[in-house]
Write a protein that binds this DNA or RNA. Structure first.
Lengths: 128, 128
DNA sequence: TTATCATTTTCGCAAATGTAGAAACAAATG
DNA sequence: CATTTGTTTCTACATTTGCGAAAATGATAA
């Protein structure tokens, strides 16, 4: 069932020569197509992997808000809030609108929020 | 347009009293319903926010694999690989199957992989 | 102009986090 | 028994991170 190839290079990083070399090669080849994108995808999820930022996204899902309002919702300083907003704006998730001294943020894409809510449901299903 | 309420508590964490107190209260109330779940959701995304783990998921999307094969695909030690596998198994994403000395891992839910591939497409759309 | 206000940015740090190595351990095999 | 495969614990290291403090920006008001 398990083909332990005789042509294993002893210099391999993994010392256990248990693997199916052909299978590994095939999967490496398949992965190589997506490999470039994976760091981007990881960065995408990293940005989502923070309760404060998720709160911001859910809050903006309700309504456009100024930085100060968001800061109050989060009970956080405006500087810290602004920092988080910037990171998400850079990711393309948020848009800003200047109005005098105030700056208003809103979701750029409603799809993101939908995805979040969908994932919340998946999560609940997992936990049952 | 902006209602600056007179009943602002001067002890507020945020020093700028620019906010629409009613709006903030309303949004806080709405968020409070989801607030409990948000740390879980963040943990979910944190686990996805790593290129190595994403590689594992995509690899297992192709085929069930033993730890050693996965380690070779990742070019990582079996110990490190096993650690990552454990974290994802704990999250409920993977299942393991013992077969003699070998241990095989597979995706528990195909939905996760579908979601990943969907998010990859969203990402590509964003970047255009 | 000067002052004030909302926000942004820079700097920097303390704390948290994550990754993975080494080695001990477990379980299966021969 | 010795090997093999995988897991776990302990550990150390580097990196990341979130955020405070304070200066800077840019708009508005006096």
């Amino acid at each position: 069932m398990k083909k332990v190839s005789s042509q294993i290079n002893p210099d391999e990083a993994c010392k256990t020569p248990c693997f199916d070399q052909d299978k590994v090669a095939a999967i490496k080849s398949i992965l190589s197509e997506e490999e470039e994108r994976l760091p981007e995808l990881a960065a995408f999820y990293k940005l989502l992997g923070n309760t404060t930022r998720l709160k911001i996204l859910f809050a903006l899902g309700e309504s456009e808000l100024c930085v100060c309002d968001i800061a109050h919702v989060l009970e956080l300083s405006t500087a810290a809030t602004s920092h988080q907003l910037k990171s998400m704006r850079q990711q393309g998730w948020l848009r800003k609108r200047d109005d005098g001294k105030m700056v208003y943020y809103r979701l750029h894409s409603i799809n993101l929020l939908k995805a979040l809510k969908g994932d919340l449901k998946i999560l609940e299903a997992q936990l049952r």
